[in-house]
Amino acid sequence: MTARLLKGALILGLMSLLAACASAGGGGASRGGLPVVTDPAPIVSGTMRPYQVRGRWYRPAEDPTYDEVGMASWYGDQFNGRPTSTGEIFDMHALTAAHKTLPLPGLVEVTNLANGRSVVLRVNDRGPFVDDRIIDLSRGAAEELDLLARGVGRVRVRYLGRAPRQGGGMRLQTASAAAPTAVTAMAPDPAPVFSGTAYWVQAGAYANRRTAQRIAGRLGDSATVDEVQTGQGRLYRVLVGPWNDANAAERARQAVLARGVDDALLISAR
């Protein structure tokens, strides 16, 4: 389990590490910023059986490699004080979450891809049963990730393993800027020599220059804003690249999609 937890560890300062340990609740130490569970709670009986909601079957399973990007929502007052699927009482201010198939109770790391904020959450309930959402956050978790006002947001969810008998939720990172994750596939080849077609990733086209510049800023130094005139007026395209290899460009497009730009396209001319 230690190797699995260490693969996604964030490097924090000493003071941040001590604060995180203090907030993690009982039953775990912290290593590299992520909790190391020394007294894992048993999986709650019955929660790993296949079940059906609204005509759709869900099959819970232990999945050490679970790492998904998708939409998150949150729930609060209407469920506060009610039992969760584990039998624990839902506290909307605690750092918890609901997931359709991961073991209960478990731990996940959730990162808001719009701002880089990350938290570790105790998964103690089932849901959300909406096709385009992969996790339901408590109100407290949504506040930490700055998703409360929007209601939904694009996140990355990584399974960390079994939860401790108590607690497990902890704040990891509270940056207000774009996610700092380095995406090496987005860097153009050094001193490229183009013998044929040049490939670019178009990370959106916007009527507002500032919007385009903000998106480009999120994507790093390899992103530029290109102004074009159309029959409907000016558009500002955010371009990443170039590459002289279509496969490399496609990998970069996937990286842009993972950063929350849903309409990224591969184009063959600037």
Rank of each mutant, 00 (worst) to 15 (best):
T2P: 03
T2M: 05
A3D: 09
K7D: 09
K7Y: 06
G13E: 13
A20S: 13
S23T: 15
A24R: 14
A24L: 11
A24N: 14
G25D: 04
G27F: 14
L34I: 12
P40L: 14
P42V: 02
G46F: 00
G46A: 06
M48Q: 06
Q52W: 10
Q52M: 12
V53K: 09
G55P: 05
W57R: 01
R59T: 01
R59H: 01
P60N: 04
E68M: 07
M71D: 14
T86P: 11
G87T: 11
E88V: 11
H93Q: 10
H93A: 13
A94M: 08
H99N: 10
L104A: 03
L107H: 09
L113R: 09
G116V: 15
R122C: 13
G127M: 02
P128Y: 07
V130D: 07
I135P: 02
E143M: 12
L145Y: 15
L145I: 15
A149Y: 13
R154M: 12
R156F: 10
R156Q: 12
R156N: 08
Y159N: 13
L160W: 06
R162G: 05
P164T: 00
Q166P: 00
L172M: 14
A177E: 15
A177M: 10
P180D: 14
A187Q: 03
P188L: 03
P188V: 00
D189S: 12
P190W: 06
W200P: 02
Y206V: 01
A207K: 09
R209K: 12
R210M: 04
G217P: 07
G217S: 07
R218G: 13
L219F: 04
D226R: 15
G233S: 08
R234G: 00
V240C: 00
A246Y: 02
E250T: 00
A255Y: 10
V256T: 06
D262Y: 08
I267K: 01
I267S: 00
R270A: 02
